[in-house]
Amino acid sequence: MSKPFSRLRRITLAAATLALSFASFSASAAPQVIRIGVATAGGGEPVTWGGSPGGVVRVNQWLEKEFKASGVQVEWLFFKGAGPAVNEALSNKQIDFAYQGDLPQVIGRANGLKTKLLLVSGARNNLYVATPPQSEIRGIKDLKDKTVSIFRGTNGHLVAINVLAANGLAERDLKTVNLDAGSAQAALVSNGVDAVFGGFELFKVRDQGLAKVVYSTQGQDPAFTRQAALLVREDFEKENKAEVQRVVDVFVRAADWSSDEKNRAELFRLWALSGTPLASWEAEFDKQELAQRNSPIPDDFIVARYKAVVDDAVKLKLIRRAVPVDGWFDTSYLKASLKKFGLEQRWAEYDARGRAKAGGASVASR
């Protein structure tokens, strides 16, 4: 081999090696920013939300502190349009993680969004019906032919329909209007509607004497509750596994703290920074264990609820075809976090009907 050719070959190999090194570095480099979409307008300064361990993460800036040394910025985006607006942001790759309810997550999946559900972050959320104080409406059956606000496409939508069905009514028996939470409250206090289906936000107007709550799912069949979870875009997860694990670690820490009864008063205080009064959180969580509501575990009950949401969404033609739930929950990151923090037995698991099972958290692969 001639010396010029040998020298050229060495230069070529060195260049190729250098190129591979740069490619490897690029593939493993952390993202410059992590964007988290939250399916609520939120409130406070900075904007936050309550009812989920995620709100604890936000208020305490645990993610910002986690990634500070890595030079990774954390951005929180809040959506007044709730779940449907979050799905649009996911579709346009404007966010990497999303906190939203079960129905919009199912609709997004049915419409082709490639996501993975990482952990539960706010289970068994209650649903209420509120009316103006002077209303003669006393319960669900009295809603027939009345003008009623239901925020369509959110995780309260299907629960409202199921509650109606349990009382012999269908959505078509009502004069429904589609209003977001803020607009629904405004319509309620101005007598623009006869009733509103909503969540804990209705306690604020009740306690101000501007409305009365005539129905609650609290203490009833757990099938009449709403679930919320943290998900991630599949392509972001594939490229940033280490960062996804760190995000899950932080949410699990928050779930552990938020499940401790000795932190109840402080938890509600933090959530109240969102603008929802302390009394509203006390009413929403009345006679309910924090660990049951704040567990991150996608147990049989959670999976069964997601499957039921799929079935109901198909029946109501909210989605055109059933989409699989099995395999959607990626519990690998959650398992790693539970093991890391010694929390494998921290939370009880529940069967498909919502009854406690023997033993702790097994977090079976799904």
Rank of each mutant, 00 (worst) to 15 (best):
G219K: 04
S183W: 01
L188P: 07
K204M: 07
A211H: 04
D207K: 07
L179C: 05
A181M: 06
F200V: 14
A187I: 10
Q220I: 01
N191K: 15
A184P: 02
Q218F: 02
L179P: 03
V189C: 08
L179W: 04
V196S: 06
S216D: 04
R206N: 02
G219E: 11
G192I: 04
A211N: 09
D207M: 12
V205F: 04
D194S: 13
G198T: 09
N191C: 00
R206M: 11
Q185P: 00
V214W: 10
K212C: 09
V177A: 06
D207T: 01
A184G: 03
G182V: 09
Q185T: 09
K204V: 02
L210I: 00
V193C: 09
Q220D: 14
A184V: 02
V213Q: 07
L202H: 06
A181Q: 13
D180E: 13
N178D: 15
S216K: 12
A181L: 01
V189Y: 09
V193D: 05
Y215W: 14
A211Q: 07
K204Y: 03
V189D: 08
T176R: 08
S183D: 14
D207L: 09
L174M: 13
K212T: 13
K175A: 08
K204Q: 13
Q220W: 00
V213D: 01
Q218T: 08
G198F: 09
F203V: 08
G219D: 07
N191L: 08
D194Q: 11
Q218A: 15
S190Q: 15
S216A: 09
A181T: 12
R206C: 02
A187C: 12
N178Y: 13
V214A: 06
G192V: 10
V213A: 04
G182S: 13
L188I: 07
R206A: 05
A187R: 14
L202S: 02
N178V: 10
L174R: 08
V214F: 04
Q185S: 10
V177Q: 09
S190C: 08
A211F: 08
A184S: 14
V205S: 03
K204L: 05
Q220C: 00
L202I: 03
V177M: 10
L202R: 00
L174P: 11
F203N: 02
S190I: 05
Q185W: 01
G182L: 11
G219I: 03
L202D: 05
F200I: 13
